[in-house]
Design a protein around this nucleic acid. Sequence first.
DNA 1: TCTTTTTGATTATACGCTTAATCAAGGTCA
DNA 2: TGACCTTGATTAAGCGTATAATCAAAAAGA
Lengths: 346, 346
Amino acid sequence: MSVKQSRIKRVTQSDVAAMAGVSTAVVSAVISPKPGKTIRVGEEAEKRVRAAMETLGYAPDVVAQSLAGGKRNIIGVFTYEAIFPSDSENFFYPFLLGIERGAMKLGQDLLLFTSSSLEKGPRSIFPGGANRMGVADGAILLGEEPDKRELKRLYDTGFPFVTIGRRDTDKAELNWVAADYTAAVADVVKRCAALGHRKLKFVGATQVREQNIDRERGFMDRQAENLTLSVERLETDDIDGAWLRRCLDDGNTVVLTETFKHAVALERQVAAMSGSVPQTISIVALASPLTRPADVERWTRISVPREEMGEVAVRNLIAQIRSPENTPIKTTLPCGFVPGSTLQAI
Amino acid sequence: MSVKQSRIKRVTQSDVAAMAGVSTAVVSAVISPKPGKTIRVGEEAEKRVRAAMETLGYAPDVVAQSLAGGKRNIIGVFTYEAIFPSDSENFFYPFLLGIERGAMKLGQDLLLFTSSSLEKGPRSIFPGGANRMGVADGAILLGEEPDKRELKRLYDTGFPFVTIGRRDTDKAELNWVAADYTAAVADVVKRCAALGHRKLKFVGATQVREQNIDRERGFMDRQAENLTLSVERLETDDIDGAWLRRCLDDGNTVVLTETFKHAVALERQVAAMSGSVPQTISIVALASPLTRPADVERWTRISVPREEMGEVAVRNLIAQIRSPENTPIKTTLPCGFVPGSTLQAI
DNA sequence: TCTTTTTGATTATACGCTTAATCAAGGTCA
DNA sequence: TGACCTTGATTAAGCGTATAATCAAAAAGA
C-alpha cells in the first residue's frame, strides 16, 4: 500500500473568510473590486479581510479564478521559438524587454507558455489539441507563426490576444501592433531621391507576409516623383554576378533590401567584381538584423521600435481585456532612419 | 445599456458524454488513462467516446483539469532585478535559458513576477505585504536578495521554492542549486601549485555571502601542500599601487580574485607600474563576469554551469512540489576551469 | 446453486473562485 | 406611518474536470 501523496494545503478564500468573520463572496469582492458592483463591502469588513489575508499569507488561485471567469492580472506570452533566445543579440529580445516594462507598469505578471513545446520543431498554440492559454487573461503572440489557421482558431475561442506584427486574416479582425514599414520605406525612397538617385531597385524576400507587403507598398508609394522603381523577390543565392551585372546595366544606383541577408549577399557580389559599396552601388537595409552582426553600424538602414512595440502590445491587450466589446486595436509605430555609410549621394 | 459580451460556448466533456451515451467520468477516463484504474472503460464505449470527441472537436480545458487535479503546472520565477536584463550578455541570462529548457521538458509554464516591482529599487517578495507567488505551484528565486528575512518568511509560509545559489539560514532548511565554488577554487590552487607557484593570494569581495565563504574554503583547503596562502577582502579601489607593491614584495606570484572587477583593477595597477600580466604576476578570476567584457577569453578563470543550474533548479523544484515531505534538495554542480593567458608557470 | 470476483459503468463531490439573486436592517420621504 | 431606497452583507449556482465511492450485471469458483 503506497503512502498517499499529501496535498499541499492551500490557503483559500474560505480560510480568509472564516478568520475575518465574513462570507467568501466578500473576500472575493475585496480582491477584485469591480465597477459593476453586485457585491458591496463595508470599510470595517474590508479592513478585517485584508488583515486576515495578510496573516494567512493568502494569494488567490489563478486557476480557480480562470475557471470562474475572473481576472487574474496575468498576461501570457507565446513565442513560436524559445522565449529566451540563446543568441542574446536576438531580434526578438527587445520586444520582451518592452513587454516586461509594460507589464510592470500595469501591475501584470507574465506567463510564458513554455509547456506548449513539442519535442522538436516550432511550438503550437494547441499542443495535442489543448490550449494552456486560458490561464492568463490574454496573450501576446510573438514571432512568425508557421500555420496561420492557428490564429484563426484562437480567435474563434474568443480569447483576447495581440500579435506583434500586422496580421491579416479572413473573417477575423485581429489586434496587432506593428512597425510602420510603409512609411519608413517611403521615407527611404524620398531620401534616396533627395540624394540624386533616380533608378531604385527593391529586393525582397520570396516569403511574402504582411510586413513584406507593407514595405513594397511604401516603395511604390513614391512612383510619382519621376523615379524608376523596380521590385524583385528572390533568394539570397539568386543574387549572383550575373544578377548584379544586370542590375547595374539597368542603371540602378541604389538597392533597398528587405533583409540584412540580402544586403550582405549583395555586397559580397559587389566585392567579387572588385567594386565597393556605396561607390559601385548604394544599399539600404529595410529591417533590423535578426542577429546583430559585428558591423551593423556601418549599414544605412531603418530601425524598428521593438521595445516600444512590446510595451504598447501590453497596453492594447489590457484595453482589449477590459472592454472586449471594443473593436480590435491596430497600432502602427514609426520606424527610424539610421544613417550609415552604405548610401551615398550620386 | 451596453451589449453583454456573449460567451463563447465551449465543447465540454458532458457534450461528448451525451453524444456517446455515457457519463462524463467515462470521457474523463478516456482522455487520461491512469494506471491507478478507479474507472474502467469498455472497448465499445471508448470507440463511441472517441468518435464523439472527433465530431464535436472536443479539447479538454486545461484550466479545469488543473483545478480538479490540484496541480497548476506553473512555476514562478522571481528575480530581484528586471527579469529580462537589458544587457543581454548579462550574468543571469543563462540561468533563464536553463530554466526555460527545464520547464519545457517537464511541461511547466513559467510565471514571471513582474508585477511585484515597486517604483524603483529592488523587488520584494511581499510587495505591500501580499505575496503573489501562491499563484504558482512553486518558485525559483534568482539573484542576490537584499533582505534575507524575506527568505525566512517565505519559507515559513510552506511555499515550495528553490534558490539559485547556496543559502544558509537559521531554522530554515532551504532548497538550492549552487556551483561548487569550493572544489573549483581548490582545483585552481592545485593547478597553480603544479605550475610552480608557492605563494598565492586570494583577493575577495568585502560583501561576504555563502558563495564567498565557499571560495575561501576552497582556497584554504590546500594549505597542506607547503604553499603559502593569504586572504584579503577589499574594495576594488583599495587595489592601488602601494597595495600591489606590498603584494609583490611579499613574494606572491599569483592572485586569485573573487570577481572580475577585482581582476581588472589589479591588472590596471600592474600596467601602471609598467608591468604586465602574467609576466609581473599571474591572475585567475574565480567567477564568471557579470557583464561580458570584450576580452573575457583572455582571462584564466573558472566557469559557472549556469544553464545547467537553471535546468536542475526546475527539476528539484518539481520534485519538491510532488513530495513535500522529502528533505530539501541541495545540489552542487561542478565548475569548469577555463585556461587563458593571465596565468603562467613560474 | 450460491457465493465471490471481475468488468464496466454511474453518481456525487471536490477543486477555489465569481456573481446573480436575495435579504435584513436602517434611513428617506411623502 | 407606511412605501421605498440604500447599504452591507449572505446564499447558492455555476465554471469543466478528476476521482472516490458505489453499483449492477456477468463471469468464475465452490
